[in-house]
């Protein structure tokens, strides 16, 4: 469905100097600054997949989306969406895609929402019957009719986002690009948007590419994620595999009455491993002992046994590393692998 082959994007702009003197200097200097926003990225996405495209601020997510939608032309490499090169055959490509940029709207600001939809109907050449069907479905999942007659500029952010998603889906596109579709939304609206995306994907086998900073979006929607950092692809695979590869730590919290029994004791010694594989933290107020360890080297029962050999344990909680933690670690460049 979508093939991205060795795509790079370099932004070149004139160097700017600070202050008034700088502005004058800028007039005469020909110095350029270049920024490689996307660096030799390749991937392939199949029909019906929902792919999470994640990375820290400025990683190059939006730039990639813009190239896949045909708004930007890659400096090198090429994209093929449904057999069409988006930047060369922009209009043909546009017929097949739906796009939501969470930060801005594609609707006509001054017009009632209903008018925007009427215009889109003409632009995408949608038959009356298909339009009716689409609208019924979209209204069901996004509840558009409750604000259909209001000018877009009077809509709340959540309403606008639902409207934008509806507008992107009206012509039943084969591919849906969502650049931060849940930015600034409350929990209920976020949930509705996610459900809508899921339903569309299931009903029409729509391919979805989604960038987000909300981990829950990814956990609930994406079967596959692509992580980019500094313009480079650093991970591409399933969510489970990401957790497996990067989430090597496991945490066990135990409630213990005689916490002082652990003072001065190195649990790693008790377990016979090096200290970097197992660390402990005492919480005197809650009477808990937290043991964080490498799940590839140590098993949970081993750890619990070691603790119980020192004192009685009243309650046990076992936690996987959260996805958020993993992602944070990746963004901060301090992952083990």
């Amino acid at each position: 469905m979508i093939t991205v082959k060795n795509v790079s994007k370099e932004f070149v702009s004139n160097k700017k100097y600070p202050g008034f003197k700088g502005a004058i200097k800028g007039l005469f200097s020909n110095e350029k600054v270049s920024k490689v926003a996307v660096d030799n990225i390749s991937f392939h996405i199949n029909k019906g997949e929902i792919v999470g495209y994640i990375g820290s601020n400025g990683a190059g997510k939006s730039t990639t989306i813009k190239m896949m939608t045909g708004i930007l032309t890659p400096t090198n490499g090429e994209c093929l969406v449904n057999g069409v090169n988006p930047s060369k055959q922009r209009k043909i490509n546009a017929q097949n895609i739906g796009v939501v940029f969470g930060q801005r709207t594609q609707l006509w600001w001054d017009l009632p929402l209903s008018e925007s939809f009427t215009i889109l109907k003409e632009i995408y050449n949608i038959s009356d019957q298909a339009y009716q069907e689409s609208m019924t479905f979209l209204n069901k999942i996004l509840d558009l009719y409750s604000f259909f007659d209001r000018p877009v500029r009077t809509l709340s952010l959540g309403q606008r986002m639902r409207a934008d998603l509806g507008a992107a889906l009206l012509h039943n596109p084969k591919v849906l690009y969502l650049d931060e579709p849940t930015i600034g939304l409350d929990l209920v609206v976020k949930d509705n948007i996610r459900k809508a995306i899921k339903e569309i994907n299931e009903k029409y086998q729509t391919t979805v590419i989604l960038t987000t900073h909300d981990i829950e979006d990814i956990e609930e929607l994406c079967s596959r994620i692509i992580v980019i950092d500094n313009g480079k692809k650093i991970y591409d695979g399933s969510l489970e595999k990401l957790k497996d590869t990067y989430g090597t730590k496991r945490k066990v919290s135990m409630e213990i009455k005689q916490l002082n029994a652990f003072e001065g004791i190195e649990l790693s010694e008790t377990l016979g491993v090096t200290p970097d594989l197992c660390s402990t933290r005492l919480d005197v107020e809650k009477n808990t002992l937290e043991v964080t360890f490498d799940k590839n080297k140590l098993q949970v029962p081993q750890v619990i046994n070691a603790v119980m050999s020192i004192a009685d344990v009243q309650d046990i909680q076992i936690q996987e590393t959260e996805l958020a933690e993993i992602v944070k670690a990746i963004y901060q460049h301090n992952v083990a692998k």
Partner: peptide
């Protein structure tokens, strides 16, 4: 300035 050129480019219009 508003960046809405992009919004025109994602639609199949001239």
């Amino acid at each position: 300035v508003k960046g809405s050129v992009a919004m025109n480019l994602i639609k199949p219009i001239d």
